[in-house]
């Protein structure tokens, strides 16, 4: 291609490179054991919309976000069990939850997160 072209600009045509689903695929290809967490429902004020993903490996490494940081720690812990058992589970987080003081959403909303193993 002739003429000036901004070769140094990040390739905006490939915004998927840091995407959790792309990371999940890459991690599986590397042989890592992986779980995928997905926000499946939100009530009230919630930091991340339904469809947001967090991908977690057996060592607790993770990418993406299901709550902007509020409950990621708890999801990562649940994911470790899901990776071992292979059984998906639905987890709810929110101020009404007894775990609120530990891992509640400071914004006052509630979210439901589906965690499953990627086989």
């Amino acid at each position: 291609m002739t003429g000036p072209t901004n070769a140094d600009v990040p390739d905006v045509a490939d915004p998927l490179s840091a995407d959790p689903l792309v990371v999940a695929e890459a991690w599986r290809r590397e042989g890592r054991r992986v779980a995928l967490a997905t926000v499946v429902e939100t009530w009230g004020s919630a930091p991340r919309p339904a469809g947001s993903h967090l991908v977690i490996d057996a060592d607790g490494d993770f990418r993406g976000s299901v709550s902007g940081g509020c409950v990621e720690g708890a999801v990562v812990a649940e994911a470790a069990e899901v990776i071992d058992s292979g059984v998906g589970r639905l987890i709810e987080f929110g101020v009404a939850d007894e775990t609120a003081w530990r891992v509640g959403l400071s914004c006052g909303g509630r979210i439901a997160v589906w965690v499953e193993r990627i086989d």
Partner: peptide
Amino acid sequence: TAFATEARFAGVRLIAE
């Protein structure tokens, strides 16, 4: 190419074709 210059469009994907 007088219009499509990196100086005028820093940070934008620009194709002078």
